[in-house]
Design a protein around this nucleic acid. Structure first.
Lengths: 141, 141
DNA sequence: CAGTATCCCTTTAGATACTG
DNA sequence: CAGTATCTAAAGGGATACTG
């Protein structure tokens, strides 16, 4: 495996000592900024929920137990700003606002779902690992 | 598409009104806990870096610009507790500690890399979306 | 309904100093 | 080297009240 035999994203480099990719994850770099944005407490859930459908504000709020009005607004605004979510306001009384994924958001959906599914699939193994970790702690103490 | 024709993870339900999956993301549920753990500021980067190799504490710290000793320790301990990272201590002076992904961690790697690559691939589109969002804000003001 | 604005408490996480 | 302990500034985020 030599440099140039593979198309790498611009922030990757191939180290000479190991045949592995190394990420350039400098503080404040674009990738870090975007990762911090989408990998937060709520964004992933919002994206997963908007799969193939449009949802209204209150509907999203009911679907994500524990989220406050303020945080849902903040999260949706950030996702809108990043071009991941589209916001449509209907000039009715009372107002109606719909949210859906943009094409860019849709391109992110597969990955997000993969992450959620991995989490679901492996929750038992993780619970076991935690038990074993606890056991080891008690043992050495 | 009818219920039962597809194997769904236990936390999914099929709503009757739409042919889409709905996630059960109740506060404090297993999936939410695990998602909160791995989708944080540093865990994704640590997992991505440990791809196919072992790294020492200081090496990880150098690779992730901006992370403090304390946060790297905390992140690694959580990942170890969840069975995603394995920690090996060599009883030498000075001490040497190596970290690598467990099989469980490796099963998560593809998804994490997909997320990082998506971020890299789409950073220009996101930057454009932000500019347009700003423009719209100024316009309406 | 879909937000904003404000207040204020809680959590997070950086800096620093110390240790086996 | 690979941490731990402590302190503290800053950010996160809930509760409440108000608005077009």
């Amino acid at each position: 495996m030599k440099e140039g035999t593979l198309e790498l994203p611009g922030n990757c480099r191939l180290t000479s000592n190991y045949d592995v990719l190394q990420w350039d994850v400098r503080e404040g770099c674009e990738v870090r900024q975007i990762l911090d944005r989408i990998a937060d407490k709520w964004s992933l859930l919002v994206i997963a929920l908007l799969d193939k459908r449009t949802m209204r504000f209150a509907e999203l709020r009911r679907s994500i137990e524990g989220i406050s009005k303020r945080m849902l607004t903040t999260t949706l605004r950030q996702l809108e700003r990043d071009g991941i979510v589209e916001r449509t306001v209907y000039a009715t009384v009372p107002p109606k606002v719909e949210y859906n994924l943009t094409p860019l958001g849709n391109s992110l959906l597969d990955t997000v779902q993969a992450l959620v599914i991995w989490t679901e699939t492996n929750q038992v193994r993780i619970a076991e690992a935690r038990d074993q970790y606890e056991a080891r702690q008690n043992e050495s103490a």
